[in-house]
Amino acid sequence: MDVAPGPAERPAPKIRKPLNRPQTTEELGFYAQNHFIMTICAVILFPPFGLIGLYFSRKTNEANKDSDWEDAYLNSSRTIWIDVFGILAGLAIIYTYVLLI
């Protein structure tokens, strides 16, 4: 008799702890970019993607402050991809609008 497997165990949510100390110069050298200027351009051109990019930009800053480099770089790459898609979508809408008028 086959027994159906139980539900997959979900990993516990990651809890970041503040450092409670100033970061060293070596730690400051690992900061991931938050791509804030690109995010602002994406918010102006295509707000749905721009606001998502703003969220990930904020998450990048939080991870940088807590020296969580893995999350910082992951959120940084998410931010840039979403910003690029937002800017391209906004430019495509403007381009299409100009062609149809």
Results as ranks from 00 to 15, higher is better:
R58N: 13
R21L: 07
W69M: 09
P22K: 07
A12H: 12
N64H: 03
I44C: 06
I87C: 05
S67W: 12
I37Y: 11
H35V: 03
L51A: 07
K14I: 15
P11G: 06
N64M: 02
N75Q: 11
A63F: 02
S57D: 02
R78S: 04
G29P: 05
P47E: 03
P48I: 04
I52S: 05
Y55F: 14
L74F: 10
L19T: 11
D68Y: 06
D71L: 11
L45R: 04
V43C: 08
Q23K: 14
L28F: 08
D66N: 14
W81C: 11
R16T: 15
E70P: 08
D68G: 03
N20Q: 13
I15P: 03
L74W: 04
M38L: 15
A42G: 01
A42I: 01
P13G: 02
P7S: 08
L51G: 03
D71K: 11
Y31G: 03
E62R: 12
G86R: 02
E70N: 13
P18R: 12
H35L: 02
A42Q: 00
G53L: 02
T79S: 02
G53C: 07
K65N: 13
I80N: 01
K65H: 11
L19P: 06
F36L: 14
F56N: 00
G86F: 00
I37C: 07
A72V: 07
G53H: 00
A32L: 04
T79D: 01
P11C: 06
D83P: 04
N61H: 09
L74G: 04
L28G: 07
T39W: 00
N20S: 12
H35I: 04
T24E: 05
Q23S: 08
K65A: 13
L19Y: 07
E62T: 14
I40R: 11
A42T: 02
P18V: 08
S67V: 15
Y73L: 14
C41N: 12
A12I: 14
T60P: 01
R10M: 11
W81I: 14
I37Q: 11
P11Q: 09
W81K: 15
I80R: 08
R78H: 06
P48C: 01
N75S: 09
V43M: 06
Y55H: 14
L54G: 00
N34I: 06
E26K: 12
R58I: 15
L74S: 05
E62Q: 14
P18K: 10
A89Q: 03
E62Y: 09
F30T: 15
T39N: 01
N20I: 10
K14F: 10
P18W: 03
V84D: 00
A32M: 03
F56T: 07
A8K: 15
I44T: 08
N61S: 14
R78E: 04
P22C: 05
Y73V: 10
L74M: 14
E26G: 07
Y73N: 13
Y31L: 12
D83H: 05
A89N: 04
L88S: 10
A63H: 02
A8G: 10
L45V: 06
G29V: 04
P13W: 05
Q33L: 12
P11L: 06
S77K: 12
C41D: 09
V84N: 01
N64V: 01
R10N: 11
W81Y: 15
F56D: 00
Y55P: 05
F36K: 10
